[in-house]
């Protein structure tokens, strides 16, 4: 088996996050109360998603420079697992919002930005599915992927800070660093981010391998077909 250690690390970290995250000590805050434990899931998922999209963009740039189809496979599968995390992040955020802000989908610029961001990446998948030729699909969707990431960052991280938002870091709310972020939370939060990133990479890796196997199978089928003729 090649390099299994990081998968084991990933499983250990995720179990650690779930167990310590749900039972460990957390600071008491008004309104938020015990729901602060959601930081380990909601916030960490969003950070992991941004990281995965960033890596995906780097592979798209690499594809445009080098022209190897493998780079594009990696970029597209990373985007898929990032979208999966994004939807999970929306759901956990929705649960949290329901109990602290009293509404599962409050009219908040960050939420709307997140929805637009996910739509943008779903459009990326649609764009991919509308091409027949591999190289052509790879080149054009790489261009779109880079473009989309450059728009995604302002939507999620810059625009909400300019307006009033319920999220920390805007409209008079403090940012995370000063946000009673004590050591108990740090001990679980940073491993959580790393754990989700590893999980996302693992998901993407499995799908990339399936894709490669399918490609080789198709090629061998074509050559067999031709030799039969």
């Amino acid at each position: 088996m090649r390099k299994i250690w990081w998968k084991i690390l990933c499983i250990v970290i995720i179990f650690y996050v779930i167990i310590i995250g749900l039972t460990g000590p957390v600071p008491r805050l008004a309104i938020i109360n015990e729901s602060i434990r959601n930081t380990y899931f909601h916030v960490a998922l969003w950070l992991a998603m941004t990281f995965l999209l960033f890596v995906s963009m780097i592979f798209s740039i690499r594809y445009l420079n080098k022209g190897r189809i493998n780079d594009d496979d990696i970029a597209s599968e990373l985007t898929k697992s990032a979208i999966f995390f994004g939807i999970l992040g929306c759901l956990t955020g929705s649960v949290w919002a329901n109990y602290t802000w009293g509404d599962p989908w409050p009219n908040d610029p960050k939420l709307n930005g997140a929805a637009v961001g996910i739509l943008m990446y779903l459009a990326y998948l649609l764009l991919r599915s509308s091409f027949e030729d591999d190289q052509r699909r790879a080149r054009i969707s790489s261009v779109y992927n880079i473009f989309a990431f450059a728009v995604f960052i302002p939507i999620i991280y810059i625009l909400p800070r300019l307006t009033d938002s319920l999220h920390p870091g805007s409209g008079g709310n403090s940012t995370f660093g000063s946000y009673d972020f004590d050591n108990n939370i740090r001990k679980v939060f940073y491993p959580a981010v790393i754990g989700y990133i590893l999980l996302g990479l693992w998901l993407a890796e499995l799908r990339i391998r399936i894709k490669r196997i399918n490609r080789v199978r198709e090629e061998t089928m074509i050559t067999e077909h031709q030799s039969l003729k």
Partner: peptide, 27 residues
């Protein structure tokens, strides 16, 4: 430019451009 490379470019144009243009529109 992106959409014209695909086959059903009219639909694709709308789907691709609206999310990207939205922040600009709001501003």
């Amino acid at each position: 430019g992106i959409a014209s490379k695909a086959d059903n470019s009219a639909t694709l144009m709308a789907v691709l451009s609206f999310p990207i243009i939205l922040p600009m529109l709001l501003m």
